[in-house]
C-alpha cells in the first residue's frame, strides 16, 4: 500500500510517499522559517497561506521523486491535529479531498503519535514496549508505549514545553527566531560552568517537568550581567545544559520505574545534538538502547505522517468524508486502531 502523507500542522509543509512493502519512497519539505523570521515567530495566518500555495507543487515533486503517478496512490494520511487550526485545515481538506476524488481511503493522523513512531522510519527500529520522550515546541512528555495507540502518559510539563523555553529564552537573549537552533548554536561557543542553573523538579520524585522557572533564571542572569556576546553564549550553554540534564534524569527515572530498556526520543528538540549525546550516555548507563530518528525526521515532516497513517490504515482504520481537525488533541485520548464501519471510510 502506497500512502501519501501530508503534514501542515505548523510552519512546515511536508509531503511523503510511504510504501508498506518498500518503506519510504520519497519525501519533500518546504520550511517557512525564513518567512516567519522577520515576525519573530510563527504567524498562523501566514503559515496557512503558505501551505495552500505550496502543497500541490510539493505533492507533484514527491510523486516524481518516487517515480509514480498521483493516480497510483493507494491511500492518503494527513495531520488532523494537534496544531494551528488554519494550517491543519489546509492539509486536511487537501488530503481528504484528494483521497475522495481518487476513491481511496484516507486517515487523519495525530501529529504527536507520528513523531513517536518516526523512529520506525529507520532500519533499526524499537520493539514495543518502550519509553518515549516527546520533546518539541509544544510538548515535553514521557510516554510508555505498549503498542500502536496504547500510550500511558508518565510525565508532562507543568508550564512551558522544553522547546518553548528554548525559543522564549533565545528571544529574550536577542538571538532571534527560530530560537531553539540559535540558542543551541550560541551554547556551543559558551561555557556551561559560568552560569549553572538548577535542574528543575529533579530533586523530588515524579516524572513531570517545569521549564518556566529556568527560563526566568536565565533572563535574570542576563539582566544582571554585562551583556556581551560571550555572556550570552555562556548563559545559553548553562541553560541548555540544565534542560539536557533534566530531560536525561527523568528519562532514566522513567526507564527504571517501568523496568524498560528502550528509549525513543522524538520531536523538534530531539534534533539537539547535545541532548542526543547525553541521552545516549543515559541509556548506556542503564544498559538500554536509544532510538532517535535522523535529524530531518525529528522536526515536522510528511514521512512520519505517511508512516503513522499507513500503520492505522493497515489495521483497517480510516476517516470518513466529514473533514474534522483537532487543534487540541491529547495523546492520551488515542486508542488502538478502530476498524472503519461499512464503506464510510472510502467515500
Amino acid at each position: 500500500m502506497k500512502v501519501l502523507g501530508i503534514e501542515t500542522s505548523c510552519d512546515e509543509t511536508g509531503l511523503a510517499l510511504y510504501d508498506t512493502e518498500q518503506g519510504l519512497l520519497a519525501h519533500v519539505l518546504h520550511s517557512q522559517v525564513a518567512t516567519h523570521e522577520s515576525y519573530g515567530g510563527v504567524v498562523p495566518e501566514i503559515a496557512s497561506r503558505d501551505h495552500i500555495r505550496k502543497w500541490v507543487g510539493l505533492t507533484r515533486e514527491c510523486a516524481a521523486r518516487a517515480d509514480m503517478k498521483i493516480k497510483h496512490i493507494d491511500a492518503v494520511a494527513y495531520t488532523a491535529g494537534p496544531g494551528l487550526a488554519g494550517a491543519l485545515f489546509s492539509g486536511a481538506v487537501a488530503g481528504r479531498t484528494l483521497a475522495w476524488t481518487l476513491g481511496i481511503p484516507a486517515i487523519g493522523v495525530h501529529h504527536m503519535e507520528a513523531h513517536l513512531l518516526a523512529p520506525m522510519l529507520e532500519p533499526e527500529s524499537p520493539d514495543f514496549p518502550f519509553i518515549c520522550l516527546l520533546v518539541s515546541g509544544g510538548h515535553t512528555q514521557l510516554v510508555r508505549v505498549d503498542g500502536l495507540g496504547q500510550y500511558l502518559l508518565l510525565g508532562d510539563t507543568l508550564d512551558d514545553a522544553a522547546g518553548e523555553a528554548f525559543d522564549k529564552t533565545a528571544k529574550m537573549l536577542g538571538l532571534g527566531y527560530p530560537g531553539g537552533p540559535r540558542l543551541a548554536k550560541a551554547a556551543e561557543s559558551g561555557d556551561a560552568q559560568k552560569f549553572v542553573f538548577a535542574r528543575p523538579m529533579t530533586n523530588r520524585p515524579g516524572l513531570d517537568f517545569s521549564f518556566s522557572g529556568l527560563k526566568t533564571a536565565a533572563i535574570t542572569a542576563f539582566n544582571s550581567a554585562h551583556r556581551d556576546s560571550a555572556v550570552i553564549n555562556d548563559i545559553a550553554a548553562g541553560f541548555q545544559a540544565s534542560v539536557v540534564e533534566t530531560l536525561c534524569i527523568k528519562c532514566r527515572r522513567a526507564l527504571q520505574q517501568e523496568n524498560l530498556r528502550n528509549l525513543v526520543v522524538a520531536g523538534g528538540v530531539a534534533s539537539n545534538t547535545r541532548l542526543r549525546a547525553a541521552l545516549q550516555q543515559t541509556v548506556d548507563d542503564v544498559d538500554g538502547e536509544l532510538f532517535c530518528p535522523r535529524l530531518e525526521f525529528c522536526t515536522d515532516n510528511g514521512a512520519m505522517i505517511a508512516l503513522a497513517g499507513a500503520l492505522r490504515l493497515q489495521a483497517g482504520e480510516s476517516s470518513n468524508t466529514e473533514i474534522v481537525i483537532r487543534p487540541r488533541w491529547p495523546l492520551s485520548e488515542m486508542q488502538p486502531p478502530q476498524r472503519a464501519s461499512g464503506a464510510s471510510g472510502m467515500r
Binding site: 496557512s48 495552500i52 487550526a85 488554519g86 485545515f89 481538506v93 487537501a94 479531498t97 481518487l102
Partner: peptide, 17 residues
C-alpha cells in the same frame, strides 16, 4: 480566510487527482 482556503484546497485536490 479559512473558508476561502477550504474551497481552494478542495478545488486544488480535485484538480490534482
Amino acid at each position: 480566510f479559512t473558508g476561502v482556503r477550504i474551497a481552494t484546497a478542495a478545488a486544488q485536490a480535485i484538480a490534482l487527482a
